[in-house]
């Protein structure tokens, strides 16, 4: 079971409450799909500027593995208040610690979309189904 201290989107981002902000990353499932377990397959990640206002579902960044470019979608709406700039030099963190050091952005939410995301159990069912 994946961590139940956070919620999940259908496009494989996770969102975790931290005070009045929400930390966002992508799940181990998404990383595995892109890299097939080879951490060096992730080659680039483009993240948004600080202060950018995101709508729920909006593309806020892009990640490139050796063989595919994929969009990163905002699981909630709000303002980007922090970006994990350490990924620029250490992209392997996303694969090695997707739930912690591999976080992407911190968002100050503008609405209540967090409550509508899937919990860990629902996400497990989502990825188990054909997609």
């Amino acid at each position: 079971m994946r961590p139940n201290d956070r919620k999940y989107s259908t496009s494989h981002e996770w969102a975790k409450k931290d005070g009045d902000t929400i930390v966002v990353g992508i799940t181990d499932f998404a990383i595995e799909e892109l890299s097939s377990g080879n951490t060096s397959d992730l080659v680039y990640c483009d993240l948004p500027d600080l202060g950018r206002i995101l709508e729920v579902g909006e593309t806020f960044g892009e990640i490139e593995s050796v063989k595919a470019v994929a969009d990163l979608n905002a699981p909630i709406g709000g303002e980007v208040v922090e970006v994990n700039s350490s990924l620029e030099e250490h992209l392997e963190k996303m694969a090695e610690d997707p739930w912690g050091a591999g976080w992407l952005v911190r968002i100050k939410p503008s609405g209540s979309e967090y409550d509508e995301l899937m919990d860990a159990e629902a996400y497990e069912k989502h990825i188990a189904a054909p997609h």
Partner: peptide, 11 residues
């Protein structure tokens, strides 16, 4: 992406 050709990991 639900097409059988693209199910599973990218490789």
């Amino acid at each position: 992406l639900s097409d059988p050709i693209y199910q599973g990991a990218v490789p």
